[in-house]
Amino acid sequence: MTQVLRLGVLVTVWLMLWSDLSWANLVSGFVVAGAIATLFPAWNRGILAIRPLAFAKFAIYFLYKLVQASLVVAVTVVVPHKRVRRGIIAVPLQGCSDAVATLVADAISLTPGTLTLEVRREPLTLYVHALDTRDVTQVQREVRTLELLAVRAFGDADAIAGLAVDDITSWRAE
């Protein structure tokens, strides 16, 4: 199933590149996708899962945050701003795969006031530059929200099970 999904992604990219749906493109797409899957073992590592509903939630939340971030930048340029405490905060991620961690790190850089600077393994931690660190837990909570949405959309079964134990509500209660 994962293999089919992987090939599907590659063939879709190929078809989009040609922007033309024809049998020739479809067949050549499968040939290229097959070659990539054979020649680059890294492409086949891990489990690829996409849950459409959870993915839609992640996408909507992310786009909302991106628009908000851009508006904040725009407003800050037009209206001179007061400097608040800028700092770098360590944010532990809880048991997501490398691929999901990459997605979270990328998404953080596009959401308001935060920028990923460094990633460390064992334990998996993101170092995030934040424009406002007056409330550190607030920054960590925002990263955590993104992680939860990303794991629900792309994580494997184990990661999802991990989320159930360490739910966002318990995080908020801390």
């Binding site: 400097r83 608040v84 405490r85 800028r86 700092g87 770098i88 905060i89 360590a90 600077l117 460094e118 460390r120 170092y127 934040a130 660190t133 007056r134 550190v136």
Partner: peptide, 13 residues
């Protein structure tokens, strides 16, 4: 680079 707040990265680098 100006930081008024905490700098957690300093510890590990």
């Amino acid at each position: 680079i100006e930081l008024e707040g905490p700098d957690d990265l300093h510890i590990i680098i």
